[in-house]
């Protein structure tokens, strides 16, 4: 061995830190970007259905959310966290939860509310108890009820068609108060099939209509282990079971479960809103409880409440319960005897 010129480490360049010294390649930024990626099919489907108007809404929401985050971070003297991509995700989700006819300034207000009220006042990403995009949407719904429930008839393929307003099947069901399939399953004078509901050929928020695109994105996230399957499965399952029972008891009053699952924001909510990491429980069991809770509340609002749609409200409500669910489902340490007091 050559004794000369053996190079040894330079102690001045060594880092001291706690173990572990290896880390999984997963980062916050990668997670956010993957989730955004998984939303792309649904966004595209929305744009195909509702034309460039939808694209406009999405872009305005994304840009204004990012801008609000940047301004708020500067104003509050917090480190810029733009690169983690969470503001972009919030913007995208907010846009997907709006109608294609939403004026741009309402989109901007929604973004300010989502980022400002939903996230920054709590201290930024990770500290917010509620899903920011839903905070934005619900705030808008309360502030501008009529704008937020004006829907456009889908015109698949036409990018710049005239906007013909119409009602959503859920909205019609809400005003009729009974299950008249011919009237409810219609959109702009045309009859809808369940296949239309599944592919997205119906009125509604930009990102919620195409169930097939949403499912593709959602399954991708489950495969990537970025969301817990328990949440969507329990959420959708609960909705199906509860509305199924209601339908069986009063077939002429209540819509069948498939209708409830495929209309409104159930699929979008179950896969993308209720699974938001920051605001949903940390364990599988917690996720299941959370999903069931969301499902029950959604059904209660839809069947007996004043609003035709209840996904946003129910998820926000369950967000508030998340810390409790987490505490309740915190594991007993390995080797703890049953019955012995473990987690508080």
């Amino acid at each position: 061995m050559a004794d000369h010129e053996i190079r040894l480490p330079d102690p001045g360049k060594l880092i001291v830190s706690s173990s572990p010294h290896f880390a999984d390649p997963q980062t916050v930024q990668k997670i956010m970007l993957t989730v955004i990626l998984s939303l792309v099919p649904a966004c595209l489907a929305g744009i195909v259905c509702f034309g460039l108007r939808a694209a406009g809404v999405l872009v305005v929401c994304c840009v204004s959310c990012v801008a609000v985050e940047a301004l708020a971070a500067r104003w509050l003297k917090r480190p810029m966290a733009l690169r983690d991509g969470s503001a972009l995700l919030t913007g995208l989700l907010l846009g997907m939860n709006l109608s294609a006819l939403t004026p741009w300034w309402i989109c901007v207000i929604g973004s300010v509310l989502a980022i400002g009220l939903g996230k920054m006042i709590y201290g930024g990403l990770g500290y917010n108890p509620f899903n920011p995009a839903l905070v934005g949407r619900v705030a808008l719904l309360i502030a501008f009820p009529s704008v937020m429930t004006t829907w456009v008839t889908p015109t698949p393929g036409q990018m710049l068609g005239d906007a013909v307003t119409t009602a959503t099947p859920l909205g019609t069901l809400g005003t009729l108060h009974r299950w008249v399939p011919d009237q409810v399953m219609a959109c702009g004078g045309q009859a809808l099939s369940y296949w239309d509901l599944f592919t997205g050929n119906l009125a509604g928020c930009i990102g919620e209509t195409s169930k097939v695109a949403l499912l593709a994105g959602g399954l991708f996230l489950i495969w990537k282990k970025l969301i817990r399957w328990q949440v969507p499965v329990c959420f959708i399952g609960t909705v199906a079971v509860m509305t199924g029972v209601a339908h069986a008891l009063a077939p002429e009053l209540r819509a069948p479960p498939l209708f409830h699952v495929l209309t409104g924001g159930v699929i979008l909510g179950a896969f993308f809103m209720a699974t938001d990491m920051v605001t949903s429980p940390m364990t599988g069991l917690g996720g299941a409880i959370f999903g069931v809770g969301c499902g029950v509340l959604t059904c209660v609002i839809r069947l007996w409440g004043g609003y035709p749609e209840g996904v946003s409200f129910s998820i926000l409500f369950m967000n508030a319960l998340t810390p409790m669910i987490d505490q309740f489902t915190a594991g007993r340490p390995f080797g703890a005897r049953p019955g012995k007091e473990a987690a508080p």
Partner: peptide
């Protein structure tokens, strides 16, 4: 003199658990 670079919790007691800080 600095002996190394410290990366971790910004607290003295936590740092003493990691090679004694920098």
């Amino acid at each position: 003199a600095k002996a190394a670079l410290y990366n971790g919790v910004n607290d003295c007691r936590a740092a003493t658990l990691v090679a004694g800080g920098a």
